[in-house]
Design a protein around this nucleic acid. Structure first.
Lengths: 236, 236
DNA sequence: TGCTCTACGTGACCACCGTCACGGCATTTC
DNA sequence: GAAATGCCGTGACGGTGGTCACGTAGAGCA
């Protein structure tokens, strides 16, 4: 099915071509049938809020493509990005499982296809398929590790430069990077929100790193010119 | 069975008197039989390290009583406490499930009875008992929420006073608190490690709060004298 | 050409808090 | 009793980085 969003809509999980590469969807056919029959598919534009901090959970969202940022904010309007979810992740599981309100907001960074399951259907699905329960546990495990890495970054770093260096190294070892070159699809303000700092400071420190010949920046692409020095700065 | 540790050792999960109150152990009899037959019981003194950051996982640890602190540290020796586990929690699940090395250290704060299961037995146990898989997911959910709360505290707070206020409010709403009075079983240094600060600053700020008549401190007991003011300071 | 909007760059200021240093008090150990 | 040890209290100092203010660059549009 064509869509005005620039990607194909895949309504049928059973013959989804990328299912095998997806953490949550890669299950055996029995479970898959149930997944397919209890989910509903939607497509939303960038900026859509799947759920909002403080809302009671309605269900869980499976990200079929695109990215979503999960963040919380303080009364004063300060925002911190908890993680950026990638295709194949389930969002809102913690709220559904604990039956408590969402403690983060999920916002689509691009236009995305999203599959939705009500809490009831989701509980039924994982209650009846051990495989699905284990996939869910796997998702939660990854979330935990990511959150702990976040705490490590925020709590153990002495300076913003250190946090930023850690973040850059994380991206450099990610999937989309090659030979120390990678695209940064974030604004300085968003980067600041990931490391608990401010837009100005991020701008300044990136400038410093460039001046010190540790990195180079061409548009949205970052090139690591001195990865060892960067690792030192990250406190490793 | 008596022990030199000041509590009764409970080797048999099936007739454990407090099992019903424990998050992980409160399962039906079929699962319980399997849990009982595949775990082994030990008692360790305070300060014991159940596992260490960087170690390959051997299995999971069920905390029967007492508390354990989970922390990571940087090369420079700076420590941050990720959470304090209470009885009925399973420790080391993330490493076991993801089959990657532990990314935290688990240290007993008191002498504790601990039940151990090898990774293999644990995987078998949760693979064969959906109930156990869901308990595990529940544990992971709680861990995630705790970690996210940690990120919120570290990342959204502008000042150490704010973080400390949040921490105090968290304790005040905990189980062991009543009418704004609660015991703090931590040293200033440990408190500092929870909020990513230093021993001196914690001492100073607690002193300030006392001077400003927001709290009062009698030995290890904290009394909230002005909870509303404290909430303001916490940025709520 | 002029207007608007968003993102980035940069300078000045100063509060907060990390670091170092020392002293006081309680408990333990010989 | 003396010494040692662990935890807490407090003063002085200096740097980091948050805040405010304003300038620049590029894109979109009439």
């Amino acid at each position: 099915m064509r869509s005005p969003y620039g990607f194909e809509i895949q309504e049928n999980c059973i013959n989804c071509p990328v299912r095998g590469q997806r953490q949550f969807c890669n299950v055996s056919s029995a479970a898959l049938e149930q997944l397919q029959s209890s989910k509903s598919t939607s497509v939303y534009p960038a900026g859509t809020l799947l759920y909002i901090e403080g809302q009671a959970p309605r269900g869980v969202f499976i990200l079929c493509n695109g990215r979503a940022k999960l963040y919380t904010s303080s009364r004063q309007g300060k925002v911190i990005i908890l993680k950026v979810a990638v295709p194949g992740e389930v969002l809102g599981v913690e709220a559904a499982l604990s039956n408590r309100e969402h403690d983060e907001t999920a916002e689509l960074l691009e236009s995305c296809q999203v599959n939705f399951m009500t809490t009831k259907d989701f509980m039924k699905y994982i209650g009846e398929n051990t495989e699905a329960a284990l996939k869910t546990a796997g998702q939660l495990t990854a979330d935990c590790r990511a959150a702990q890495e976040g705490i490590r970054c925020l709590g153990l770093s002495g300076s913003v430069e250190e946090k930023l260096a850690r973040l850059l190294l994380g991206w450099a070892s990610g999937a989309a990077a090659q030979q120390g070159r990678f695209k940064v699809p974030y604004k300085h303000e968003e980067i600041a929100q990931m490391i608990g700092s401010t837009r100005e400071t991020v701008t300044r420190i990136l400038g410093n790193l460039k001046r010190k010949n540790v990195i180079d920046i061409k548009g949205a692409t970052v090139i690591l010119k001195d990865p060892d020095r960067l690792k030192e700065l990250a406190g490793a």
